[in-house]
C-alpha cells in the first residue's frame, strides 16, 4: 500500500512540474497562437544557466538570471522571428519553432557535451518522510512552488488589467486591439511568462532524483505536450489537470512495470502519455477543459 502511495505522490509531484511546462505551452498558444516546439529547449536553457552560474554567484542569483534569461529568449523569439513570419499561419509558426528548437538544442547540447551538470539546488539529495512514504525534498519544494506559481497566474489572469487584457487578446485579437489593448505587449508578456515557468520547471526536472542537466531534459519536456493537449489547448487550469494525469499515469506505469511488462513491453512509461493523448484527442478533440471550436456557416 505504501508503495502505491509513494508512486501516486511521486506521480502527482512530477505531474505538477509537467503542468508548469504545459501551462507555458498553453500561455504561448493563447497569447500568440504559436505551437512552441522550442519550449523544451527553453526548459533546458533555464536549467543550463543555473548549472553554469551557480558555482560562481550562488544558486538563488543564478536562478534569477535563468528566469530572466529564459523569459528574454522567449520575448526575442516572438519579437524577431514569429512576428516577422513571411506567411503567418499556425503551421508555419510551428515549423519555425522546430527550426528554433534545432538551433537552441544543438548549441546547448554542444556546450553540455557528455557531462551531466549538477544544478546545485540547496535542498540537495535529501528526502522528506511522511510515515512510511519517502519523497525527495526537491519534489516537495516543486509542488509548493508550483501551487504558488499557479495561484499567481490565477491572480494575474483574473485580477490585473494586464492579465484580463491577455485574455481579451486571446479571445478576439482585433477587437481587443480596438479596445486599446496593445497586442504586442500581451504577446510579449505571454512569452516571458512561459519562459519563467520553463526555467522553474527546468531546475526541478534536473535536481534530485534526476542526476543533473543533460540534453535529454529537452525531450522529457516533450512529455508535457500530452499534458497540455489533454487539458485543452487554451486552458491553464487544464494544463494543471493534464499535468497531474500524465504524471500519475507515467509514475504508475513505470512503478508497476514489472507486472505490466508482459502485456505492454518494457519502457511503456515513456509512451503511456502519448497513448493517453491520442485516445483523448479521439474522444474530445479540444481536450478536457479547452474551449470547443465552433464553425458557423
Amino acid at each position: 500500500m505504501s508503495y502505491f502511495l509513494t508512486q501516486v505522490l511521486n506521480g502527482l509531484s512530477y505531474g505538477l512540474v509537467l503542468s508548469l511546462i504545459a501551462a507555458g505551452f498553453a500561455i504561448v498558444f493563447t497569447s500568440t497562437g504559436v505551437l512552441n516546439f522550442a519550449h523544451g529547449s527553453i526548459v533546458l536553457l533555464g536549467a543550463y544557466l543555473v548549472a553554469v552560474l551557480h558555482p560562481t554567484i550562488g544558486f538563488w542569483p543564478a536562478m534569477l538570471v535563468a528566469l530572466f534569461g529564459a523569459a528574454l529568449v522567449g520575448v526575442l523569439i516572438n519579437a524577431l522571428l514569429v512576428r516577422n513570419l513571411a506567411d503567418p499561419t499556425p503551421g508555419a509558426a510551428a515549423i519555425l519553432m522546430l527550426g528554433v528548437d534545432i538551433v537552441l538544442l544543438t548549441e546547448l547540447t554542444r556546450r553540455i557535451g557528455n557531462q551531466v551538470l549538477p544544478v546545485g539546488a540547496p535542498w540537495g539529495a535529501s528526502v522528506v518522510r511522511f510515515g512510511e512514504i519517502a519523497l525527495p525534498t526537491g519534489r516537495v519544494v516543486a509542488a509548493g512552488v508550483t501551487v504558488v506559481a499557479f495561484a499567481a497566474l490565477w491572480y494575474l489572469f483574473s485580477r490585473t488589467d494586464l492579465g484580463v487584457g491577455m485574455r481579451a487578446a486571446a479571445a478576439d485579437g482585433p477587437t481587443a486591439s480596438l479596445m486599446g489593448i496593445r497586442l504586442s505587449r500581451t504577446a510579449a508578456t505571454g512569452w516571458a511568462l512561459a519562459g519563467v515557468l520553463a526555467a522553474v520547471a527546468g531546475v526541478f526536472l534536473t535536481s534530485f532524483p534526476s542526476p543533473g542537466v543533460a540534453p535529454t531534459i529537452a525531450l522529457s519536456a516533450f512529455a508535457a505536450i500530452p499534458a497540455w493537449v489533454l487539458g485543452g489547448f487554451d486552458s491553464v487550469p487544464g494544463a494543471v489537470v493534464g499535468g497531474l494525469l500524465i504524471g500519475l499515469t507515467s509514475a504508475l506505469v513505470t512503478g508497476y512495470e514489472g507486472d505490466l511488462e508482459h502485456v505492454l513491453g518494457a519502457g511503456f512509461g515513456e509512451v503511456a502519455p502519448y497513448v493517453v493523448m491520442i485516445v483523448v484527442l479521439l474522444v474530445r478533440p479540444s481536450g478536457l477543459m479547452g474551449s470547443k471550436e465552433a464553425v458557423r456557416v
Binding site: L35, A94, F222, I225, V229, A266, F268, V271, L282, P285
Partner: peptide, 28 residues
C-alpha cells in the same frame, strides 16, 4: 479516424504520439 477529426497543429500533435508508439513497438 484521428486524422479526420483533427486539424492543423492538433493533428501534428497527435502524429507526434505515433513516433513514440512505433518506436516503443520496434524496441519491444
Amino acid at each position: 479516424p484521428v486524422a479526420g477529426r483533427l486539424r492543423g497543429i492538433y493533428l501534428g500533435l497527435a502524429t507526434l504520439g505515433l513516433v513514440f508508439i512505433v518506436r516503443h513497438l520496434l524496441l519491444n
